[in-house]
Amino acid sequence: MYIYDIYSMSTMTGDLDTPETPRMRVILSNSSSEPIYEQIARQIRAQIIGGELEEGSLLSSIRSLARDLQVSVITTKRAYEELEREGLIDTVGGKGTFVAAQNPQFLREKRMSLVEEKLADAVSEARLVGLSLDDLSEMLRLLAEEE
């Protein structure tokens, strides 16, 4: 497993005084059955939706990301293409790739689909160990109350 922290060089506003430099964190697993490009896309997506990468942040270029992650350029390109298709990032020719302006409604939908995805995972795991729907909802209720 390889862990890399990638700090993007600057923000689009050029405001160097922001205390927190937006940063992209990508962890790749060689043993995962998930394709590398999907691992990259999923993690960046989560950081955009989760607000860790703010609107307008400049992302690492395809090539420097490939260099930093030690993966092929085609892989990172594919990951970015996927995010671009989802409207999460924009590539401005000659300037770089930025986190796209999100409309709140869209972001909410995205976050919801993320919740849905994780619940689906939980459901299929539950099936494997033979948990009933009731057991599962009970578990969910307990978890929610704990917080």
Binding site: R63, S64, A66, R67, Q70, V71, S72, V73
Partner: peptide, 9 residues
Amino acid sequence: LARLSAIIA
């Protein structure tokens, strides 16, 4: 190999 990916950057 890492150097190669730096070269093509």
